[in-house]
Design a protein around this nucleic acid. Structure first.
Lengths: 221, 221
DNA sequence: GCAAAAGTGTTCTAGGTACACCCATGT
DNA sequence: ACATGGGTGTACCTAGAACACTTTTGC
């Protein structure tokens, strides 16, 4: 039992974990095994330990839910509307993370009966105010695609420029011109030509590039 | 006495209140009358009531400290490093506000022995991690000046274009071209010519303009 | 008539957009 | 030889930057 002179809220982190799969932007959702909202889909997250930093808590959740580390993580917003949780006053510090396509090894932990990737374009009803959290995260992601290198964090260690262009097209939802796209990304010198090529199908092999600073998002322009 | 099965952190809001005075960007600081950091300068702020929204709490602090309402307020970031407060685990949701030059009627409340405006260029040592909070707020403000109408929230109800230009020059720290500046702000149709003029000194009177949507920051460009 | 801030257009430059063809490979 | 995606250059257009003089007022 822990006692305080004044009532204290509980503090959680919720984390919006994005990835790209099958040409779609997806978020990781867990099916809640406990009340409230039992059986309902929700964002991974949980209570912040009393001696644990906020980002540390988010990284812990991320690792527990997807097994990945060293990815792009950013604080999104703090949600604290009274009654957003029926149990007690809960203030949630939301984070969002970008997980490269090749790094995900989802292994749901004990709290969740299952964890699954859901396309952003057709999300189920979500517990609490998680719909709103996902919405804000998508908005932030889309905005940052324009003026930062955030998109590179979706890429595996080695990737082709066509793959990268596809990522931008999916998130922005518009087709891009190949020549202009290449001009722009090659002007920015944060990606390197590995010298290697990858053969995929009956056509010319593509050059492979790497992103120098995985896990970061530099502001450009 | 309030009891919980698991330890709960305390949650506060701290608020960085900016204004412009004497051609300088200033922040409102209070001198702490209680431990910890008694006698030290700190940001206004305080505990979030158990049934109070986060923004509501910030607005309450703002009103208590400066007596102003209806100004631009935005959530900045949530600071939660363990031990940032020596008393107990305290997670602080930081907000920042822009108060127009003519609206401020600072009246320190009981918590603070005094409240004073301090120039950002020469801040005293601050309590807790408040130096860091002010730093982040300044950074955000400077960035938003470039791509939003946030700067208009520093203006009184009626203002001249020269006054507005001066505001931008102070915050960006660089002189601006008068013709280009006027072209840009007049292209954006969120400010209106009142038709009135103001005589100030031995020179031609200046047109007075108003900002249509006080308390907001539209993204432009 | 002079000091002091208000007000007003044009030219130049750079970055973004639009656009079409050849190349390397597998079958 | 043909189908498939990889790779490359130029012309145009528009938004931002640089730049100097006239106007209105008070003293």
């Amino acid at each position: 039992m822990y006692q305080y002179d004044y009532p204290h809220p509980a503090v959680t982190t919720d984390i919006v974990i994005f990835t790209l799969q099958d040409n779609e932007l997806k978020v990781l959702l867990i099916e809640r095994s406990n009340d409230p909202y039992q059986g309902c889909w929700a964002l991974p997250g949980g209570f912040v330990d009393i001696d644990e930093g906020l980002e540390t808590a988010a990284l812990r959740e991320l690792k527990e839910e997807t097994g990945v580390t060293g990815v792009y993580l950013e604080q999104l917003y703090t949600f604290g509307r009274p009654n957003r949780d029926p149990r007690e006053r809960v203030i949630s510090v939301a984070y969002y993370a970008l997980v490269p396509i090749d790094k995900l090894h989802v292994r749901p932990d004990s709290d969740a009966s299952k964890a699954e990737w859901h396309a952003c374009s057709s999300l189920p009803d979500l517990a609490f105010d998680h719909q709103q959290i996902v919405g804000l995260a998508r908005q932030r992601l889309a905005a940052k695609m324009d003026y930062s290198t955030i998109g590179l964090n979706f890429m595996p260690d080695k990737f082709t420029l066509s793959e990268l262009q596809r990522v931008y097209e999916i998130i922005k939802g518009v087709p891009l011109d190949k020549r202009n796209f290449r001009k722009r990304v090659l002007t920015f010198n944060g990606i390197n030509d590995t010298g290697e090529k990858r053969q995929a199908g009956k056509h010319r092999p593509a050059r492979l590039y790497t992103f120098k600073s995985q896990g970061t998002a530099e502001i450009i322009k």
